[in-house]
Simulated assay, not measured.
Amino acid sequence: MELIENLVLVFVAGLVTALATGIGALPFFFVDEFSDRWNVGLWGIASGIMVTVSLFGLVDEGLAYASGGFPTLMVGGLLAGVALVTVSDRVLDGVDLGDVGHHDHDHDHDHDATDVQTDGAGHDHGEVALEAKAFAEGDLKKLVLILGILTVHSFPEGVAVGVSFAELGLDGGLSILGFSVPLLAVFMTIAISIHNVPEGTAIAIPMQAMGLSNWRMVGAAVFSSLPQPIGAVIAFAFVSWAEAFLPFGFGFAAGAMVYLVATEFIPEALETGADLPNRGYPQLLAGLAAGVISMIPVLYV
C-alpha cells in the first residue's frame, strides 16, 4: 500500500509539471501577444535551476550512493542520459510529421497549417503547427502519433522528476500531505514546471493564429507534456525496486537534464530573443543568475 501511495504522489508531481505547460497559454485569455523578454527570462531561470540541481543535487546524490567511492554506474548513467537525448533528437528529425494522418477532407486546411510554422518570433515549429492542426480537426490518429513523439521528447524530464523522489519517506525531507518529500524532488518539480511555461506559450501561439479557442490552446499545451508523469512513475518505480542502480538513475537524470539545457533550452531562449536588444542575452543571463541564486539556500540545507 505504501508503494502505491508513493507512486501516486510521484505521478501527481509529474502531472503538476504537465499542467504547468497549460499556464503558458493562459495569458492569451487576456492579451494577444506574450512578451519575448518574459519567455527568455523563464528559459534562463529554468536552465539555471536545472543545471544547479543536476550538478549539486543529482550528481552529489549519485556519488553518495556510489559503492567504494568509484562512480562507475553514475558516469554510465550520465553518458546514457546524453545518449538518450541525442538519439531522441535524431529520431524526431527523421520523422516527417507533415505527411502523416492527412485525409482527403484535410486539404482545405493544408494551407492554414503550412502557413503557421512560426511561433511569432520567427521560430520554426513545424511540430507545434501540426499539433495545432490535429487539435483543430480532432484527428485522433494524428494526436496519438504526436503523443508518441512527445513521449520521446519529454521522457527525460519525467525521469528527472521520478529519480529525484528516490529518497521519498526518509528523514530530512519536507512534510507534504503526510509524506517526507526530498528537497531535491521539490525543486526539480518546480524547475521543470517553470521550463514548461514558455514551452506552453510556444505551442499556443500558432494555435491562436489558427483561431482555436483559448481552452483548446490550454488543452494542447498540457497534452504536450502528458508523458512526463508517466516517465516520473517509471523512473521512481525502477530506482525503488533496484536501489543498487540509484547512482545510474541519478547520473542518467543529471546527464539528460544538463544536455537538454545546453542543446535545447539555451538555444530556444536565444532564438526567442533574436529580435530583442542584444539578442536577449541580458534577459537570459538575468534568468540564469536568478535560477542559480534561488538554489543557493537548498545547497546549504
Score class of each variant (00 low, 15 high):
I4V: 13
L7H: 00
A13P: 07
L15I: 07
V16T: 09
A18K: 13
A20V: 09
A20G: 06
T21R: 13
G22A: 11
L26K: 09
F28Y: 13
F29V: 01
D32L: 12
W38A: 11
W38C: 05
G41A: 12
W43H: 14
W43I: 05
I49P: 04
V51M: 14
T52I: 06
V53G: 01
S54Q: 08
G57D: 06
E61D: 10
G62K: 11
L63H: 03
L63N: 05
Y65T: 11
A66P: 03
A66S: 15
L73K: 10
L73D: 05
G76F: 13
L79I: 13
A80T: 12
V82M: 10
A83C: 06
V85M: 08
T86R: 11
D89K: 15
R90A: 10
D93C: 09
V95I: 15
L97A: 05
H102Q: 12
H107S: 13
H107P: 00
H107G: 06
H107I: 14
H111S: 06
T114L: 15
V116Y: 00
Q117K: 09
G120A: 02
G122I: 03
G122S: 02
L130A: 00
E131S: 06
K133I: 01
K133S: 14
F135K: 08
G138L: 08
L145Q: 05
G148N: 10
G148Y: 13
L150A: 12
H153S: 02
H153W: 00
V161H: 00
A166Q: 09
D171C: 04
D171P: 07
G172C: 11
S175M: 15
S175E: 14
L177K: 07
L177W: 15
G178V: 14
S180G: 07
S180P: 03
V181M: 11
P182M: 03
P182D: 08
A185C: 12
A185L: 12
A185F: 14
A185W: 10
F187L: 13
F187A: 09
I190M: 10
A191E: 07
A191V: 04
I192F: 13
I192C: 12
S193M: 10
S193R: 11
I194N: 08
H195F: 14
P198E: 10
E199Q: 04
G200E: 03
A202K: 12
P206E: 08
A209Q: 12
M210G: 03
G211W: 08
L212F: 02
S213A: 08
W215L: 04
R216H: 05
G219S: 05
A220S: 11
A220K: 07
A221M: 02
V222H: 04
F223V: 07
A232L: 04
I234D: 03
I234Y: 06
F238Y: 10
S240M: 00
W241D: 02
W241R: 02
A244H: 10
A244Y: 12
F245C: 00
P247E: 00
G249C: 08
G249F: 11
F250A: 04
G251S: 03
G251D: 04
A253L: 11
A254D: 01
G255R: 03
Y259S: 12
T263G: 09
P267W: 01
L270P: 02
L270C: 04
A274V: 04
A274P: 01
G280Y: 04
G280S: 09
Y281Q: 04
Y281W: 14
P282N: 00
L284E: 02
A286D: 03
I293Q: 07
S294G: 12
P297D: 01
P297E: 00
V298Y: 06
V298R: 01
L299M: 05
Y300M: 09
V301Y: 09
